[in-house]
Design a protein around this nucleic acid. Sequence first.
DNA 1: CTGTTAGCGCCTTCAG
DNA 2: CTGAAGGCGCTAACAG
Lengths: 405, 405
Amino acid sequence: MSDAPVTLSQVAREAGVSLATASRAINGSATRSVREDLRERVLEAARRLAYSPDPSAQAMARGRTTALGLVVHDIADPYFSTIAAGVARAAERAGLIVTLASTEHSSARELAFVELARRQRSRAIILAGGRLEPEDGGASAGSEAPAGGGASAGGASGEPGADGGPGPGETGPADPPVGADGPSADGARPVPGALEAALNAFQEAGGGVALVGQPIGGLPVVEIANADGAADLARALHGLGYRWFAVLAGPDGHRTAADRTAGFTGALAELGSPVAPDDVLTCPFTRDGGYSAMGDLIKRAEAGRLPELVFAVNDVMAVGAMAAVRDAGLSVPDDVAVAGFDDIHTLRDVSPGLTTVRIPLAEVGELATELALGRAERTRTTVRGEVVLRDSTPPRPSATPADQS
Amino acid sequence: MSDAPVTLSQVAREAGVSLATASRAINGSATRSVREDLRERVLEAARRLAYSPDPSAQAMARGRTTALGLVVHDIADPYFSTIAAGVARAAERAGLIVTLASTEHSSARELAFVELARRQRSRAIILAGGRLEPEDGGASAGSEAPAGGGASAGGASGEPGADGGPGPGETGPADPPVGADGPSADGARPVPGALEAALNAFQEAGGGVALVGQPIGGLPVVEIANADGAADLARALHGLGYRWFAVLAGPDGHRTAADRTAGFTGALAELGSPVAPDDVLTCPFTRDGGYSAMGDLIKRAEAGRLPELVFAVNDVMAVGAMAAVRDAGLSVPDDVAVAGFDDIHTLRDVSPGLTTVRIPLAEVGELATELALGRAERTRTTVRGEVVLRDSTPPRPSATPADQS
DNA sequence: CTGTTAGCGCCTTCAG
DNA sequence: CTGAAGGCGCTAACAG
């Protein structure tokens, strides 16, 4: 029962052929075929011995792994875990092993993982996560202007070394080597552009790359139509009769947040219901961020009135905002309507149902995988969301009948 | 900029030492030291060249990878993604790369991944997920009775070859070999006990194993005190004055579900408020399962009355149940109180707040990692939950004052 | 303490 | 079309 790993040469011997032939029979070598009966014999022997190739050995011989790197900001976040599910599915289909990295929002870790992937010669890498502006100027518009500012360099430099000491256990002593827990973790100061450089290097080394969210340089990307989705949402809401909006806009420099905010306010401006600058609140991209920003809004409103509708740039924030409303003894949607973005599946049943923009996150993950593997036609795809109206934004009684699709 | 991977020998040359010395200096070999100045020189050279070891090569040479396999039922499920976050954190601390497998509930895939991990010589593997009874009899009680059944042969045999054609891109042609997308995917009929056997084989081959949830055989496990947690919950609820309970009990044969159900009903029986068999409803372990079971309950109750409180064996089901209540035009908690289990973070803000049993899922993931790495004292840990009372289960007016802690 | 020498398992030119 | 011979980058006995 405790069988030592079966090697290819064993299979070869068992089949009565040479190692080379066995190899060719099993992986269908590029430089053509093996006689049918031999191939049969080999396959049969492989099956009998329950042979399965050693990925490491293959990787060494071929100079390329069978691994697909997936790096996300936080795998516990439903946004990312849904994307991960899509990636996992597509990767399995492609016969790849996915290696997961959850950076916990540290751009230093993110960089380290990209470099690790290169070193490890991963087949491809997928980077999902809200790039911060300072990373690089290369938006879709003018690719100049590094867009200075943006003091928040992120958690950065995260725990240099981190050592990870041997620990009490009886695991082998030789554990984390010098630079183990993050290759060149030392040189990992979040230099602007470092990530792009690392990604380019990875690509030049023959790896596939796909970004999810916003582009970096000219790298392949599955873009999410954040601005368009938010604009659609704004129009729908306007159509329901809302006229006074506030936006919980996420942190400065967060591109996804900024795009959603811009799309929303832009569309409203066009409709003649511009959002006042004061009604655009900066806050963390999290549940707590939504909660506290909404709290501020309510506090501020104690003198006057509350906006009719608050748009939080993601569902998790929106749910936090709804909690703040409740905690203040007010009601959604009676005192204030709330809308979000993403349509996180786990939040489908919050009450009242949250109006939002549905992004097919799992598909996004699958798409990104195809892209990274070079199996897609284009090198750039945009996924457009779909407005989903629910009870958190009922039609306003005073609504002028308008389009509502 | 497009630097080909730096090898150890380059570092050695740069530092003016032999390959072996460089290796020793960098990984701190078991058979002790290197002179301080030489080590310095090597490290310095490594840094200058931005060297970082090739995991595949190391794996080959050492006969052991630096990979930690994590297999979950569905990474999109918040329960698993939270555990995954803990695993990711602990793994990084230990300098390990985590390879993720989302089985989408196919036990054939689960088995295939365990075998892959063995073949790949992963350092350790963590299996999270509700084992189904039929897997094996080896609970804590009698370890006999293979408990046959288990017809679902799963997707199995998945697309032999899968070819994955060269594709348009410039990715290498040689792609998934014959048995690539799942080692011995052929022999993967969900034979009862096969998983345990595979796990044992993996362990005997020197890999670390940790289960999350329920034990299999005598393998290391982080158990979750499902029965105790549910019993605590039952007592707390009873203390609040509830007397008539129903349970959305999950599917037959699902151990986690069964344990929670048993703990809950057992405690109530002791308290003199036994749950009637009719009030224990079998249903899928999902949101929709909770929704439809609650729907049944409501339908059935149209003649008579509804139970005072419905306990769904996990939060996601509970949320589905709440949705069903709302959709029936009823209210939680006015018409019926609802409680869940897990305390999924993303659901913290549902309204009314859901009473539940908090399981520190991320910690569970970290613990499992320690365990799998042999860094824990014991080989078996139990994580106990904590009852969290929220608005979905307010005290009953007619309550007899009782303990409530 | 350091350097030399074999491989780990597999793929891939080279001959045959 | 098949077999024999190198080598991928690194570690782990062996000498020196």
